[in-house]
Amino acid sequence: MAKSDLDTKKIKTAIIGSGNIGTDLMIKIAESSDVLEVGCVIGIDEASEGLAMARERGFATSHEGVEGAQKLDVWKDVKIVFDATSAYAHAKHDAICEAENKQMVDLTPAAIGPYCVPVVNMDAHLDAPNVNMVTCGGQATIPMVYAVSRVSDSVPYAEIVASVSSRSAGPGTRANIDEFTRTTAKGIEQVGGAQKGKAIIILNPAEPPMIMRDTVYALSVGGKEEDVRKSVANMVADVQAYVPGYRLKQEVQFESFTGNNKLHIPGLGTYEGTKVTIFLEVEGAGHYLPKYAGNLDIMTSAGMGTAEAIARKKFGAAA
């Protein structure tokens, strides 16, 4: 089938990683992006389901990693590269793409480039050669921490607990647990606005598989309850623009700590303020992954949205 005029204006991308995240991203771009197109899909297992699906859709593939992709005719036309492998492998991939002046969108917890959470700070990093999408837990919870911090005098501490189905945690996720906790905690601080952040991930083996659930605890100093409620509701709506299954599970909870009832945080000190508790659920869109895998869907949705914004600003893609 001949490409339409619109297709010829799209920016070619490469996806490194043919696992759950890479395959879902491939389908999202192919079926819903107005400014991006899949140039090639890169893996290391010729028999992987992701590479098989890419070949079925007519996309160029390499099962010999990025080195194999560099031999493909389409590689020279690729402007944006997604990395959906591991934090360990990303350093090598980034070096190759930097040398060839290709934009990198990092979906691993490597955090070589600046942290990017679309609804909070995407516009600030559209010129960076490498942007990091933090983690699935970070994409789900950092917007909530920021929603609290933007209407507070300060947020001395924020902690998030991300619970995901063990079925939605592939080899890459399991290999990156330590990086997940460190990167998410830093993102809570650098993007969310908390002075100190902590992150916990739980892989839940429950059957039937559970939808991603996230709990956010944030200590607000100087924030008014009604302002926090409104800020959280507005941020939920902003995230729903690209992840429709993102929602509050119940009303935001508040607990006041003042006077003789101050809050002591081990290692940090004693504070007066309001403990804000936010309960979230993230249901996936079901493009490739089951709907319970909202943890992966929010990553691919955020990554694609960021790449589309970069394509428009840096490469002149049609709006």
Rank of each mutant, 00 (worst) to 15 (best):
I11Q: 09
I11S: 08
G19T: 09
L25N: 05
S32D: 13
A47S: 12
A54V: 14
G58F: 09
G65W: 09
V66K: 06
Q70T: 12
D73W: 01
V74S: 10
W75L: 04
V78Q: 04
K79Y: 01
K92H: 13
A99D: 14
M104E: 09
L107Y: 02
P114G: 01
Y115E: 00
V119S: 15
N121V: 13
M122T: 03
A140T: 11
M144R: 04
M144K: 06
M144D: 05
S152Q: 10
I160K: 03
A162I: 09
V164I: 15
S165C: 04
R167V: 11
R182A: 13
T184R: 08
K196Y: 15
K198G: 04
I201K: 07
N204H: 11
Y217S: 13
V221S: 03
V221P: 00
G223K: 05
G223E: 02
D227E: 14
A233D: 15
N234P: 00
D238N: 11
Q240S: 05
A241C: 03
V243R: 08
V243K: 06
L248P: 08
K249H: 07
V252R: 00
Q253N: 11
L263S: 05
L263G: 03
G267Q: 08
G267V: 11
T270K: 13
T277R: 12
F279L: 14
E281M: 02
G286Y: 06
A293N: 07
L296D: 14
M299P: 02
K314H: 02
